[in-house]
Every structure is written in structure tokens, then in C-alpha cells.
């Protein structure tokens, strides 16, 4: 890894100030992606600003009819927290199938969505549950947050503080994971709440997206059979060493069917 300077401020304001003063600063959350990326010199920041010292960024609470999770909360904590199991069990399950146990002990919600890896799991939950992303300066609707391949609506130096997930009546995440990395080859998050059905797909294309035509159909008739009339065209799917585009296109239907079936069977 190239040389850089490291600091761990204890307050949000100090972290933002450190970023502004740095020549080419990067915030460090759990580091489970950023550090491997830096080892490959795909990122060469002059300054790393570690957010682990800011206790305000960590924690889980119920805020009205939503579950609020701090940006620095680890996947392991989300997977095991009673509040998450009670409010949105599908979210606990999703967090518990990210990477492996050691990665889950370090990796964080904020780090995952800020990175927006096309095969990451959390973006499916943010889009699939109509979550709101809170930053140091504003709130961003989940639908507007993920803008492209590793791209988000975050501005330079903007810091995610927490994410608010509305509690859905029912939700399920179905993932076909890569056996080596644990990343989603395809993952489909389906939720059904007072605002209707949402279907968010990760892994299949360069960026998480909602299948709005399928959502409309499921709003009319919420059955696994409804899914069969809808697909993501092969031409839009990722094609790499892990899976062909045709395979991913097929998997979207399989995972969506399983998610809807699990909700109708009450096996969330």
C-alpha cells in the first residue's frame, strides 16, 4: 500500500474538517472494500479519515414506524440485533449473508452503500424498502441514492450518518451468492407494505434497480406465478467470469419468484 496519513477524529465536524483540509481524502468505515482496493492501488488517497471514533454514527433504534441504523453499524450487529429481527427480519437475514463472519464483524452499512458495488446486498434493501439515507447535510430518498456503476448521489466529502428503513408489513431477500466471495450473482429484495409492493434487484446489472412493471403486476395480484411474465432482458445484464448475462437474466425470475413465494407462505 502507498503511504498516506491516518487520523481518527472523535466528532463528525472534525471528520468533515479533516476531509476538507486533505489533498485527496477518503473516509474509512469498516475498510473491507477500501483497504483491498488500496492494496491494488486502485485508490491512492493522501489521507484516510477513520470514522470508527465517532460514536454517534453507530447504533440501531426504532424511530416511529422506521428502523434507524447508524452508518458505522457493522453487518454482524444488524444481523443479530433484536430490534432488526422484530421490525424487519428480512434485513437481519440480508446482513447475515454478506461476505463471511469475519468481514461482517468489520464491514458497515454506510460503507457498503457509499461504495455501491453492483453485487452488494444492502443497496437492494435500501431500494426495496424505500429507505432514506441521512448525510451530514441532507436526506436522500433511497430511489435517488444509487445513480450508476459504483456511483451514488453523494457529493464530494458528503458523509452518510444513518439510514432509516420504513417497517414493511412483509419483506424477503433472496440471493444467489457467488460461492467464493459471497457477493450476490443476483439478489432480489421484495417488500409489501402500505405503500404497495417493491422489487429491487442487485447483482444482475451495473447498478441496483427496481422492477416497476413487476411491482405494478404484484400490486394487482401478489402470487409467485405473477413473476413469470416479467424478466430483465439479457442485453441489460452483467456478463463476467461469475455468470453469463443469460444466466443472470434467468436468476432474476427465480429469485423474485422465491421471494414472493416466501412472503405468501409467511416464511420471511
Amino acid at each position: 500500500m502507498q503511504d498516506f496519513s491516518y487520523q481518527r477524529p472523535a466528532a463528525l465536524t472534525a471528520a468533515i474538517e479533516a476531509f476538507e483540509q486533505a489533498e485527496d481524502g477518503r473516509f474509512l468505515a469498516g475498510g473491507q472494500t477500501l483497504l483491498p482496493v488500496m492494496k491494488h492501488r486502485l485508490a491512492t488517497p493522501s489521507d484516510l479519515i477513520d470514522l470508527a471514533g465517532i460514536s454517534d454514527l453507530e447504533g440501531i433504534s426504532i424511530a416511529g414506524s422506521a428502523l434507524s441504523i447508524g452508518a458505522m453499524t457493522t453487518h454482524a450487529r444488524v444481523a443479530s440485533a433484536a430490534e432488526v429481527h422484530d421490525a424487519i427480519p428480512a434485513l437481519a437475514k440480508l446482513a447475515g449473508c454478506i461476505g463471511d463472519p469475519h468481514v461482517r464483524n468489520r464491514g458497515t452499512l454506510g460503507g457498503s452503500i457509499a461504495n455501491n458495488d453492483p453485487a452488494a446486498d444492502y443497496p437492494a434493501a435500501v431500494a426495496g424498502l424505500n429507505a432514506t439515507v441521512y448525510t451530514d447535510r441532507r436526506r436522500i430518498a433511497g430511489d435517488d441514492f444509487f445513480t450508476g456503476f459504483f456511483e451514488t448521489a453523494l457529493e464530494e466529502g458528503e458523509l452518510i450518518t444513518r439510514v432509516e428503513f420504513p417497517v414493511a408489513a412483509a419483506a424477503c431477500y433472496q440471493k444467489f451468492d457467488d460461492p467464493a466471495s459471497g457477493y450476490a450473482v443476483v439478489g432480489v429484495f421484495v417488500s409489501r407494505g402500505s405503500q404497495g409492493v417493491r422489487v429491487a434487484v442487485t447483482g444482475a446489472t451495473p447498478c441496483v434497480f427496481r422492477m416497476r412493471d413487476l411491482e405494478a403486476a404484484l400490486n394487482r395480484k401478489f402470487t409467485p406465478e405473477t413473476v413469470s411474465g416479467f424478466c430483465v432482458p439479457e442485453e441489460e445484464c452483467n456478463d463476467d467470469l461469475h455468470a453469463t448475462a443469460a444466466y443472470r437474466s434467468h436468476l432474476v425470475g427465480v429469485m423474485a419468484t422465491r421471494a414472493v413465494a416466501a412472503i405468501t407462505d409467511g416464511e420471511m
Binding site: Y6, G31, D50, V103, N105
Partner: peptide, 28 residues
């Protein structure tokens, strides 16, 4: 050295972590 194999696992405050995917200074 790419956080895949787990040969470097140690316990940090009782939790298993990959010590090749952490800076030493993060363990302060």
C-alpha cells in the same frame, strides 16, 4: 492478502477479524 482465505484471523475485542484487512492503527 486479499481478505479471502482467513489464515490471518485474530480476535479483536473478542470478534474474529481478518488482520490483513485492517490497519494496525485501527486497533488502537
Amino acid at each position: 492478502d486479499t481478505s479471502q482465505c482467513g489464515a490471518c484471523v485474530v480476535h479483536l475485542d473478542g470478534l474474529a477479524v481478518k488482520s490483513c484487512t485492517m490497519l494496525a492503527l485501527q486497533a488502537e
